[in-house]
Every structure is written in C-alpha cells, then in structure tokens.
Design a protein around this nucleic acid. Structure first.
Lengths: 148, 148
DNA sequence: TATTTACATTTGTATATACAATTGTTGTAC
DNA sequence: GTACAACAATTGTATATACAAATGTAAATA
C-alpha cells in the first residue's frame, strides 16, 4: 500500500500529511476486505460488532447505552442498527422490567449460530489483511497506536 | 488510545484482532478531529480532498475519473460530491469540448481562497493528532503501513 | 404529591454512501 | 454509413450515518 501510487501523485507529501493519508488508505482497504467477507451473511461490520458484544455478555442482556460504550465505531443510531438485527432474527429486545426507560437486548440462538460462521470468515480475512506482518510488527503497531 | 478501555472490556483480545480494532479506533479519532476542524467551512473530508486535487492540477481541469483515481477514499458518487462543491461556488464544471462524454472540473478563485483557510486548520489538527509521535515514529508507521 | 430535572431510547430529517441501471457519446468493425 | 461495443458521467434507489427534537420514564426537590 504505497501512498503516492494509491493517490496517483508524484508530489512530495509532508511526513505528517503522508502519515494521515496512509492511515486512511489502509483503513479503506481493511474495511473493504472485512465488509466483503461479511457480505455472505448480509450484516455490516457494525452489526457484526454488536453481535459479538452481545455474545460476550454471557446470557446477560445489554441495553443500548452499553452497546454504544463498547462498540468500536460509535454510531449515532444504535436503535436502528438493532432494529435490523431483530429483522434478521439475530437478536431480540424487550423493555427492561426494573427500569422501563431501558431495553434489554439479547442475542438469539439463531444469531449465535450465524455469528459462529462469521467468526470463521473473520479469522480468514484477518490473516489475509495481516499476512505480511510478523507478531513483532503487530506489537509495534499497537505500541504506536497507543500514542494517538 | 487504549483498546480495552475504549471498548470497555477486560477480555484478552488476540493480537491480530486487537491490531485491527486498534486501527479502527485510531482511525475514528482522526476522522472526528479532522471533520470537526473542517466543520467551520461546511465541507466534508472528501470534499476537501477533491478541492486539494483540483488545486494540484495547476489550472488544468480534471474530469471525474481523474478525481476518482486520486481521491484517498474512493467513493461511488463523485458526481454528487462535485454537485455540492458547485453549490458552494468552490468549483465549476463544463462539458469537455473535445470529448463530450467527459466533464472538465476546475476550482474557482473562491474555492481556492476557502481552501487556503482550510489548510491552516488542517495543519493545526494534523499536529494535534500526531503530537505524541516523533518523526522517527511516523516513519516507522509509514513503513508498517506499506506492508498492508 | 406536584413540579422539575435527568435519563434512555426512539423518531424525524438531512446528508452521505453503495450499487445498479440508464443516458449520451465516441470508436470500431463490417 | 449502420450496428455494435466501449466509455464517461448521471440518475434512481436503497441503505447508512449524523444530529436534533421528541417521547416516555424515573428520580429529586420543594
């Protein structure tokens, strides 16, 4: 993923700008690859993320604000994201009995089964994305990311 | 930008997944900061990008496919993105006389003036984003990004 | 207990993005 | 020259995302 080639320029780009542009380029690539691998299941990356959070609850339900806190990309409409997962039968949602302002969202058995299949695809695509990086280099990346 | 804290988990995340999640988290942060700094000018990051490409043309017009080639984030509707820049008076578009299938898109003086103001904001926000990284670390990041 | 404040989610609306189909133009083969 | 393929951009439609306002509930205060 070379910057100058990707944006078809032969100008010298300052290191700061170049770093940020490079970031976006790699991000787009990762996004495309992951989205493609989830396409079979007709879920977006965000929806997949929510399913994983719900599975991580180990039977405990989550409410919307919990989901928002834990989502990798906080988006401004988790209600409608959950609506879509309900339509697919992957989650259900009931009003919280102890506090009727809240909702209780749970992953269904169907959602869990689908998620297990997605996991397989995800592992494949993650390895594909990172195939040129050693463990040491990944550690290095994580260290650098901590500085942001 | 710590992963576990950002997504409020205390689970151990495998290095591969962690790297990719970390990537998204930092990318979201960069996106937010840049979008916020462009908000004063009522342009999106993509629109800003197009303006910069047009300025880089040095008077030569660009057509849509050229823009698409050079955009950092290739989006599937550059026509409508350009529509919006025209509405703002920042660019103009005419049918290419030598090949009526193509269009010629140019930045206007008004667009150029606005872009110069944006540049100032951009430099500030880029420095803010990268304030904890040395030049050497940025180089390192760019090297690692080349492996994607 | 009535009123106000804070909370949690949902809804409305505008904008952004993705993808496919369409339109109009040019080039090519016969 | 006509038919067909390739090209470049636009349009239609569906979905995604952002932001603000509205709804309904619970807690706090007087």
């Amino acid at each position: 993923m070379n910057v100058e080639e990707a944006i078809k320029t032969n100008k010298k780009i300052p290191l700061e700008s170049r770093t940020i542009i490079h970031f976006f380029l790699v991000n787009n690539k990762i996004n495309e690859m992951i989205s493609a691998s989830l396409k079979d299941f007709d879920v977006s990356l965000q929806q997949f993320n929510v399913l994983r959070i719900l599975r991580g609850q180990k039977g405990e339900p989550a409410n919307l604000s919990t989901l928002n806190e834990r989502m990798v990309t906080k988006m401004s409409n988790t209600t409608r994201l959950v609506d879509k997962l309900i339509l697919k039968g992957y989650v259900d949602r009931v009003v919280c009995p102890s506090n009727r302002r809240k909702v209780e969202i749970r992953i269904t058995d169907e959602g869990r089964a689908a998620l297990e299949k997605m996991d397989v695809n995800m592992e494949v695509v993650e390895n594909e994305i990172l195939k040129n990086l050693s463990s040491k280099e990944m550690e290095q990346l994580n260290e650098l990311f901590n500085k942001f």
